[in-house]
Computed example of a mutant assay.
Amino acid sequence: MTTLARPSRVERIHAAFRQAAGEGRAAFIPFMTAGYPDQGRFLAVAAELLKRADLLEIGLPYSDPLGDGPVIQRAGEQAIAGGTSTRRTLELIGALRPTTQVPLLIMTYINPVYAVGPEEFMRLAAEAGVDGLILPDLPPDQDDEIGALAAQYGLALTFLIAPTSTPARVRLVTAACTGFVYAVSVTGVTGVRGGGALGEVPALVALARQHTDLPVAVGFGVKDAATARLVAHDAAADGVVVGSAFISAVSRGEDVGALADELLAGCRK
């Protein structure tokens, strides 16, 4: 069986975090739903974000996104209605890949992977130029093939930990990650939130670091420079993930480049 193993994909992710750290900041990781608000404008928005991003997270539209809040849910519904399927998402990423060396990550639930077929999905992702997968609903201890296939095709894997994760769970999840560790700032779904308290995030980041040398990025609830600074500086995270704020900006016809500049400034340590 022919493989497309390219360890450089995993290294490209690690190098992006190292470069950001060398510049005295957390890595800036914007998120955009593939095909939103339509396929053409998605490519334009992604190109704008890629001018500032250290890594770009691309959401694969899915009909039952249990971990996503209403903003990203609506974006996914609109993208699906506009014809953005799993395979079309990979084609869109393939169109972006020649334009950038920034790591491109797919955030996907596990059902679309199995709908295509795990090995076929990994093959298509590797051919499209994907560097890694973020899998919010796959418990690593219940995975008997995804990790092996990702490694075979040279793709990094990222799983999530939350404030409710026990030390044993954090140890298990971090051991399964090969790209970075994704720490969610709150228990619940994605979305912009009010307030400025970090709660248990600093402790969660510190706990993850007891079990892994991989970068730890924090997402859910980051909306502006102030909240990005809380994550980057006060929680000492290696990366700041921003999703719903960009989806909302696109829906209002606002300049995503200006918002990205503001958030990037907030990533300073």
Rank of each mutant, 00 (worst) to 15 (best):
A75C: 13
P103W: 00
Y182C: 13
E91V: 12
G257S: 11
A156M: 07
R9Q: 11
K51D: 14
R18T: 12
A15P: 02
N111V: 09
T166G: 05
A265M: 12
V184W: 09
M107R: 11
R41S: 08
V216P: 06
V250S: 02
D143H: 15
A26Y: 10
L138M: 13
I58N: 00
A265F: 10
L138G: 09
R74P: 00
R169N: 05
K223L: 04
T89H: 02
F121E: 06
V241L: 11
H211K: 11
G194P: 01
A46K: 07
Q73N: 12
T33K: 03
G40T: 15
E77R: 12
V240I: 14
K51L: 15
F42L: 10
A203C: 00
L155Q: 05
E119A: 13
D144I: 13
G179F: 05
T86V: 15
D38H: 12
A128F: 01
R74N: 10
G132T: 13
A176G: 08
G196R: 15
V205K: 04
A148M: 07
T190A: 10
G22Q: 09
A151Y: 04
T178C: 03
A16W: 06
L263V: 13
G82I: 08
D38E: 14
H211F: 15
G266H: 03
M32P: 02
A27G: 07
V216C: 11
D68P: 00
R97E: 05
T99Y: 06
T84E: 10
I106K: 01
T190E: 09
I13A: 07
A150L: 08
V241G: 04
G243A: 06
I134V: 15
G69C: 10
A206Y: 01
P112S: 05
R52I: 03
G24E: 11
K223W: 02
R74Y: 05
L207V: 01
S251A: 15
E127F: 03
G67E: 12
A46E: 06
R25N: 02
A126M: 06
Y114V: 14
R268G: 10
A225N: 06
L96M: 09
A176L: 04
V241S: 04
T190F: 00
V71S: 14
V201C: 08
A175V: 11
A175C: 09
S63K: 01
L133D: 05
A26I: 11
A16C: 12
L204C: 06
V170R: 00
V102I: 14
L172K: 15
T84I: 12
F121Y: 14
I29C: 12
I58T: 07
A225W: 01
Y109A: 02
A176R: 06
S244I: 11
I161P: 04
Q78Y: 01
V186E: 04
G22K: 09
L124H: 06
T212R: 11
L198W: 03
G221S: 05
A126K: 05
A176W: 02
P202C: 08
D141F: 09
D234S: 11
D213H: 15
T158C: 12
G69L: 09
K223F: 01
V189L: 13
V170M: 03
A20F: 13
F220E: 12
V170K: 00
L66Y: 08
V173R: 00
A128Y: 00
F28M: 10
P103C: 00
T158H: 07
I247K: 04
E262L: 08
C177H: 10
Q152H: 04
V113R: 01
A128C: 03
V102C: 11
Y109R: 01
V256L: 10
F220H: 09
R18N: 05
L149R: 04
A237I: 08
